[in-house]
């Protein structure tokens, strides 16, 4: 089976490192990262990852707007997107789902079960 490729967009470098590390380790996915929404959209279009993990609170372009742009771009609109965010209010979650998110994972996340949570949202069977 082809190795899954996942794009992780977050402005915090520490989080990017941590998430990449544990998802590679636990699920064996190939991780690519972006530090802003703008960069993320470009990478997504060019690299065509299997899924995008997206932070909600980022400077300049926030997660929701990034998602909207991803959804509007024919090259990226098919890629499933999951929010990994510190925004835990129900109203935010509803907005994220309404914009087309496949799932919402709260920060701080459990580094050991993060992969299985993502798989669960995307309907991927456990590898």
């Amino acid at each position: 089976m082809k190795k899954k490729r996942i794009l992780f967009i977050d402005d915090e470098e520490d989080i990017r490192i941590l998430a990449s590390f544990c998802l590679e380790l636990e699920a064996g996915w190939e991780m690519i990262t972006a530090s802003s929404g703008k960069e993320g959209i470009e990478i997504a279009a060019s690299q065509q990852p299997d899924a995008i993990l997206l932070d909600a609170m980022m400077p300049e372009m926030d997660g929701l707007e990034t998602l909207v742009q991803l959804q509007n771009n024919p090259k990226t609109k098919h890629i499933p997107t999951i929010f990994i965010t510190a925004k835990v209010q129900a109203s935010d979650r509803r907005r994220f789902y309404a914009a087309g998110a496949k799932g919402v994972i709260n920060k701080p996340f459990d580094s050991l079960t993060l992969a299985s949570q993502i798989s669960g949202f995307l309907g991927w069977s456990n590898q």
Partner: peptide, 12 residues
Amino acid sequence: TPLTSIYGVIKL
């Protein structure tokens, strides 16, 4: 945000 890092790393 900082908690995410601390918690995630310790868990690992």
